[in-house]
Design a protein around this nucleic acid. Structure first.
Lengths: 95, 95
DNA sequence: TAAATAAGTTTATAATATAAACCAAAAATA
DNA sequence: TATTTTTGGTTTATATTATAAACTTATTTA
């Protein structure tokens, strides 16, 4: 017991973890909302969202709100599973 | 509530977190023990222990076991406090 | 119409984690 | 006893990352 299983490096990152944490409890969230909630810069957020998207942990939809661009994110099943397993592994480190 | 407080980068690292996790429950541990438990390379472990030492999260004592060098590590109060606060902060990300 | 704001993306940089290479001494072996 | 291997690490090089700065394009606002 108490084995130190590897921590998914995609989730073991402050900003990406915060994003996933939000998305898991929210169905979907806009870029600007995530930016405010996580207090990140747009650039950093953009990069990290891309990584989560490429890993298929989240889905990114681009559309328009009125005339302005709108980036909407939601977590995928794969993302949920990865998050849950990350949390399980992490517990062995912190308890 | 559920604020994303910054995660101490010194602890938000797989290997250093594993080391701290062990040291917190063990009074003191030898280099080789930590190496086996964490399944890390000696080089990586050496570097990470140094960082924890420089931050005064752990104390490193060098001596000899018989004729062989012996590196012994133990956590400091500062380390314990940092770990506890890291865990508290982290909880907001994962629950 | 010029300046400011919104909503991002791209790129540059600095920090990090990690393993490879190295070292010194001791122990095993030929 | 010479030499090879093992032990117990440290130092250095590299590749990856996280992050912010700079940039872009369109839209308001003054």
């Amino acid at each position: 017991m108490s084995e130190f299983k590897p921590l998914d490096p995609l989730l073991h990152s402050q900003l990406r973890l915060a994003v996933m944490s939000i998305l898991i409890s929210v169905e979907s969230a806009e870029f600007t909302f995530l930016k405010e909630k996580t207090e990140s810069t747009a650039g950093n957020l953009s990069v990290q969202l891309d990584k989560l998207d490429k890993a298929e942990y989240i889905r990114i939809t681009k559309s328009f709100k009125g005339k302005r661009p709108l980036t909407t994110c939601s977590v995928t099943q794969k993302g949920v599973r990865a998050f849950e397993s990350y949390v399980e592994n992490l517990k062995n480190y912190i308890t």
